[in-house]
């Protein structure tokens, strides 16, 4: 993983890569107004007689905002040096969250804006997906499922494993999730980070 990423970075640095509208496709990373962006949708628009255009939807990778842009077909746009890589979450020093590439032992620090929505799910030693732009972290995606300890919740209702009913539980990372009534403090639970929902109890 680390080696592949290095090659891509080197290539784009050497050639100042750019993409013509004919190369546009979903997922392509480009520079738009000085920010890295990913193409979400690309539509070829052409009247029988008249100029061809590419109507493109992009996501600004710094702000997450979706932008619509139209390009005269045949135009080019600068490529963004954006790569995704897996890194291990190490620790938070109060200001930054530190991650490490497990093959190269290279470390990066992400600030609060970058960590953003991932913050409540970051547990030390978990493997996260880090999006890097020019080598600096742009966003952090936690694993789809994380196992976290319940540090605070109302006392459990013994035996009540069948009927519904939920209660809030605070987890070791500070995240609050809705859990079934039978879950107790000190127990480990599995949470889906994409929905923020409880999945199951986990035996230690």
């Amino acid at each position: 993983m680390g080696i592949i990423r290095k090659q891509i970075v080197q290539e784009s640095n050497n050639t100042m890569a750019s993409y013509s509208t004919n190369e546009f496709k979903r997922g392509l990373k480009v520079m738009l107004d000085g920010d890295p962006a990913a193409i979400i949708e690309n539509e070829f628009v052409k009247p029988g007689k008249g100029q061809a255009f590419n109507r493109v939807k992009l996501r600004n990778l710094k702000t997450g905002r979706v932008i619509e842009r139209t390009f005269k077909s045949g135009e080019s746009i600068e490529a963004a040096d954006v790569v995704e890589t897996e890194m291990q979450y190490l620790y938070n020093d109060g200001e930054a969250w530190h991650f490490m590439d497990q093959e190269t032992f290279e470390q990066v620090a992400a600030d609060e804006i970058v960590v953003a929505d991932a913050k409540p799910w970051l547990k030390e030693q978990d493997i996260c997906t880090i999006t890097l732009w020019n080598g600096a972290p742009l966003s952090v995606t936690p694993p789809n499922h994380v196992i976290l300890k319940v540090v605070e919740t109302e006392p459990g209702v013994r035996g009540d494993t069948a009927t519904g009913g939920n209660k809030p539980a605070t987890l070791e990372t500070g995240a609050v999730v809705q859990v079934p009534l039978f879950v107790n403090e000190g127990e480990l639970i599995k949470v889906d980070t994409r929905t923020g929902e409880y999945v199951s109890r986990v035996r230690e």
């Binding site: 009247p47 008249g50 390009f71 746009i77």
Partner: peptide
């Protein structure tokens, strides 16, 4: 709109159309 020159009147008409 990337690539459209200000003076290409018909291209702008085509874009609006």
């Amino acid at each position: 709109v990337t690539g459209l020159a200000k003076q290409d009147r018909d291209d702008w008409l085509n874009l609006l159309m």
